[in-house]
């Protein structure tokens, strides 16, 4: 039973990784930018989520507000930070992104204080028993919410005209443009969806920890990079699977290897092992 519980914990953690990493892999797929500041948007999502919940008492409303606001901030980052330097070599955007991320952390500290903030009445704290596994309602909501969002993304990109245009642009931007697709609009949409997903992850982490702090994004900032490499850069399905796999490996690793390796070390040892065998990532094509 312990193993099943650990598996469940791993999948919950993996869901959060997935929501953060999807946005990152979308940006990489479209623009070949490693968008480190994405983790800063994850933190912002947490802050908006807690503040709106405390003000209105509704977690669902807070989730929506967080996703929309952070989505818009994500678009603004594209417009103000990345668009002017798109024709520069990729490391220019990477450095800009790292700088932006550090600045965001310090702005959160100045605006919201160094101590972090918590829910006044933490929602979804009850415990449920399912299939012999004990989970907090917040953890169930995290897994279910991830499934819902990823499902919606799959339907959107597979079944709608805009989704088709999006996939076409990721595959071959020049060709897509010559077919009359507005690739600028696609880029904005890309940043909106990716950032909104990161915001939802931020709200869920806020819920699970009952705390949002300025440096909340520091671990996701590099772990999400590891995940998208594992998943085969730019590959959404691969990223989702890699995120879940990593969550589960960390859950078991924390218990059975925790004495020798901390959580991050386990993640990166796994990354190195995989890359030695499959340099293109777990699910990438050679």
């Amino acid at each position: 039973m312990l193993y099943v519980e650990l598996l469940a914990q791993g999948l919950v953690q993996g869901s959060i990784y997935a929501l953060v990493a999807v946005g990152l892999t979308l940006v990489y797929g479209l623009l070949r930018i490693l968008h480190v500041a994405h983790a800063g948007l994850f933190t912002l999502g947490g802050y908006v989520g807690v503040l709106v919940t405390n003000a209105t008492g509704s977690l669902l409303l807070a989730l929506l507000v967080a996703m929309v606001t952070v989505g818009i901030v994500g678009m603004a980052i594209y417009r103000l930070c990345y668009q002017p330097i798109l024709d520069k070599p990729p490391y220019v955007a990477l450095i800009a992104s790292i700088g932006l991320f550090i600045a965001m952390e310090e702005v959160y500290r100045l605006v919201f204080g160094p101590y972090g903030i918590s829910f006044e009445n933490p929602p979804l704290q009850d415990v449920v028993q399912m299939f012999g596994v004990t989970l907090r309602l917040g953890e169930v909501a995290t897994a279910a919410g991830t499934l819902l969002l990823v499902g919606a993304l799959a339907v959107f990109s597979g079944k709608t005209r805009f989704g088709t245009a999006w996939r076409a642009t990721v595959t071959d931007p020049d060709m897509a443009e010559s077919f009359g697709i507005d690739i600028i609009k696609v880029r904005y949409l890309n940043f909106f969806i990716g950032s909104a997903f990161a915001a939802s992850a931020g709200v869920m982490v806020a819920l699970l920890n009952n705390m949002v702090e300025p440096t909340m994004g520091s671990v996701p900032s590099y772990k999400a990079l590891a995940i998208i490499v594992l998943g085969g850069l730019g590959d959404v399905r691969g990223t989702l699977l890699a995120a879940l796999a990593l969550g589960v490996i960390e859950a078991f690793g924390t218990i059975y290897l925790g004495k020798f390796l901390d959580r991050d070390a386990i993640a990166f040892a796994f990354l190195i092992l995989v890359l030695m065998v499959r340099p293109q990532g777990l699910f990438g094509r050679a």
Partner: peptide, 21 residues
């Protein structure tokens, strides 16, 4: 038993599960 965690950890699901056992 004894468990270790890193200063960056905020989610202790696996440790909590094992402590319960």
């Amino acid at each position: 038993s004894e468990y270790e965690y890193s200063i960056k950890d905020r989610q202790f699901g696996p440790i909590v599960t094992k402590v319960k056992a």
